[in-house]
Design a protein around this nucleic acid. Structure first.
Lengths: 202, 202
DNA sequence: CCATTCTCTGAACGGTGTTCAGAGAAAACA
DNA sequence: TGTTTTCTCTGAACACCGTTCAGAGAATGG
């Protein structure tokens, strides 16, 4: 009786279809301009159907936020490896900034929007975020081990500093708080600021 | 004929009343949980009346964002003065972080929310933000002049770096991306990260 | 006292997220 | 096969939202 298996497969396919179309709409129209009805229209089902696969709008956004993290983690993986850890750390920061500027919609989902934060708070943990933070912490640890950073360095603090610096720069840009910088120059300016910071550290 | 003057005064009083009650509601219930109807109820007028004083919801939020900047600019003024510029810069960063943690609602308004950004983009300038950024830039310039920073330092780049670092730390906290840190310790942790950064620079 | 100007109301419009009784198809059982 | 059960899906309905606007009523000016 393969019925149950087929049902499960079809259920997953429907979830994937909803997520795919929702992501398409969100990225092209902006998160606040996409309603459940519009998603329903895009998948050619009635609005009620979506609620048979997701409990509410936030659950869709949380699922998309997980998908964004997969892509993000890959982009950040240039930081892993066995070269000089300081060089990898700097490379990771550059990759972080480029990813955010190239994928502002995904970045918002992961690090700015309120909606996923509600679920993070409710679950009281955030594996996806902490995985990426772990990658960063490991690299910072290696910088301590290799003597690049002083032995008494508190690794979580140093990693948070590094993350905060990158996040601050890109989130100011994404939320339009740098209107004095022409859009075409944003990436370069952020990278300069980042380089200023790492030059001071290095 | 003092009628016109009285009318103008009453008009201003009504605008202030709306802003005051709106701010109260926003800070206590959160921005997305306050509707125009709720504001109308708070001021004891019908919803339509608000639109005689503000063209739409975004205009209210933009006006509140200006009020937030007044308070913020004052808090940041510890950075001005005539002591050692580097010391003032560090003090300014500390004030920035403390202000944001103590007034997350105001901070969101100024640096995170989308709504004021629309108006900033429409007006294509942002005096209030640039005033505060100017305060920072001036202090960085004085660090260059006093020899604390190398003469070839690009001041806007260094200032942006400093801003980004502070903004990144607090906005991660405000948007709940640091669930691994207990709320009571957030401020201390952010300050440690900030100190790690300035120690590297100083 | 009348005409004008101004303020304010509240119903209405077209949207929103979400729920749920009931229709109809598919599967399981006899 | 026919019958019963299980499952999927619909779409109207609910309670909200931001915003508009004809018209009521008061204040002002002549």
């Amino acid at each position: 009786m393969g019925t149950t298996e087929r049902r499960e497969r079809e259920r997953k396919e429907m979830r994937d279809l909803i997520l795919e179309k929702a992501m398409e709409l969100f990225l092209s129209e902006g998160y606040e301009n996409v309603s459940m009805r519009k998603i329903a229209e895009a998948i050619e089902y009635s609005p009620g159907t979506i609620y048979l696969y997701f409990s509410d709008r936030d659950e869709i956004i949380f699922a998309l936020h997980l998908m964004a993290f997969q892509k993000f983690y890959k982009a950040l993986s240039v930081m892993a490896g066995d070269g000089d850890p300081w060089e990898r750390l700097v490379k990771g920061g550059g990759a972080y900034i480029r990813f955010a500027i190239a994928n502002p919609g995904l970045y918002e989902l992961m690090f700015i929007m309120n909606s996923p934060a509600k679920t993070i708070k409710a679950k009281d943990k955030w594996e996806e975020g902490l995985n990426s933070f772990g990658l960063l912490s490991d690299t910072v640890q290696e910088c301590v081990d290799s003597g690049k950073f002083p032995a008494e360095t508190d690794v979580p603090t140093a990693a948070l500093y590094f993350w905060g610096m990158c996040h601050g720069l890109v989130s100011l840009a994404i939320r339009n708080r740098l209107p004095m910088i022409p859009k075409s120059q944003i990436r370069g300016v952020l990278e300069s600021a980042f380089n200023f910071g790492v030059a001071k550290m290095g």
